[in-house]
Design a protein around this nucleic acid. Structure first.
Lengths: 196, 196
DNA sequence: GTCTATACGCCGATAGAC
DNA sequence: GTCTATCGGCGTATAGAC
């Protein structure tokens, strides 16, 4: 028997991985099942042995992407370091060179935030909350009062920046990103310095 | 002869109007020609008497929308008033009740900022610049040094806020919008108060 | 479980009558 | 200039062989 349960689970993960990558950078509509399955080294016919529909895959893929996003990994190494937050911001804004294997949903997915299907919108919002909470947690440890507000403000800027940056051609794009990064880090610093 | 040049120009404007409205709220891909032409009180067959392709229409429609956006209209009445900027911010963030006849491209179009076709991206960026410059102009009059940076920062926040807000269901959406508005206005105030 | 082949619908674009 | 009808392509989903 060539097809073990482990094998099925493994290919399911391959599909999720490919889907997350593609959905996150192009959005729900612009990605086709054939594209996804091709990237998972299969043909589109095999898809329905794993998921019932494209939208079902989307839900699962967003959850996958959110839990695998770089900010969700507990970086024990950098935890506590002063540069931790700045590194997160910098990492977020350097998406063009980012770890393509673990794409972050928020980076590009503003596209789907307004999608017709509620499930799609909810998936986006869950991801947004995940990042805000993560950031707020770090800020609280640093002694920020209004950590939640500052975190929300920061994520809005990050998302807005990356979304808009995609319309720029080089080298204007990197200039724009640098300016934004500077502003965001400054804001974080002054938000923290009011206490420490 | 039932079809005068004026008549053609008039229907062309109707198409542009309908297209701007639809594109701005749903993005390039999710809007169909049939939809647009229906809203302009015609059938899809009539389209090609006015435009050569969907993407051509998009360009024209974005230009139309940008020049008709509420921030592009010189509000001589409010010019100089202290509440002018705040009104602009507030107006921008209340898109759900906004003037549906003159939709603002930036509000929803982050969707298309990453579109494959360069023309589409350029159209988006032109609109972005239009708003940044408009804001920077006002800020300069108020004596802000770094008017350009502050304007860019503000527009990024506005766009990010509205884009993200679309994933929220009521009443969380209005809470989110209110928080963002407060933050943005505060930032503008402190940016101005450093001088005046 | 994965393949190839195909059904079905939607959309952009064209053809031709009026 | 606007209509109806239709072509052609693509994308989701299904059918059936292996």
């Amino acid at each position: 028997m060539p097809y073990t349960p482990q094998h099925k689970e493994h290919t399911r993960q391959r599909i999720l991985h490919a889907a997350a990558k593609l959905f996150c950078s192009q959005g729900f509509d612009r990605v086709t099942l054939t594209q996804i399955m091709k990237q998972a080294n299969m043909t589109h016919g095999a898809f329905y042995a794993h998921f019932s529909a494209k939208s079902s895959l989307y839900e699962a893929a967003m959850q996958f992407a959110t839990s695998h996003a770089f900010w969700a990994r507990d970086d024990k190494q950098t935890e506590g370091k002063e540069t931790h937050i700045k590194a997160l911001v910098s990492r977020y804004l350097s998406w063009s060179k980012s770890d393509k294997e673990h794409p972050s949903p928020l980076e590009f997915l503003v596209t789907d935030a307004a999608h017709k299907e509620e499930k799609v919108r909810q998936a986006y919002q869950a991801c947004f909350d995940s990042l805000v909470n993560r950031l707020a947690g770090i800020l609280k440890k640093r002694g920020s009062q209004d950590a939640n507000a500052l975190a929300e403000e920061t994520v809005v800027s990050l998302v807005g920046t990356v979304a808009i940056a995609r319309s720029f051609a080089q080298p204007l794009q990197s200039d724009f990103l640098k300016r934004a990064q500077k502003r965001i880090v400054n804001r974080l610093n002054s938000g923290l310095s009011t206490v420490s």
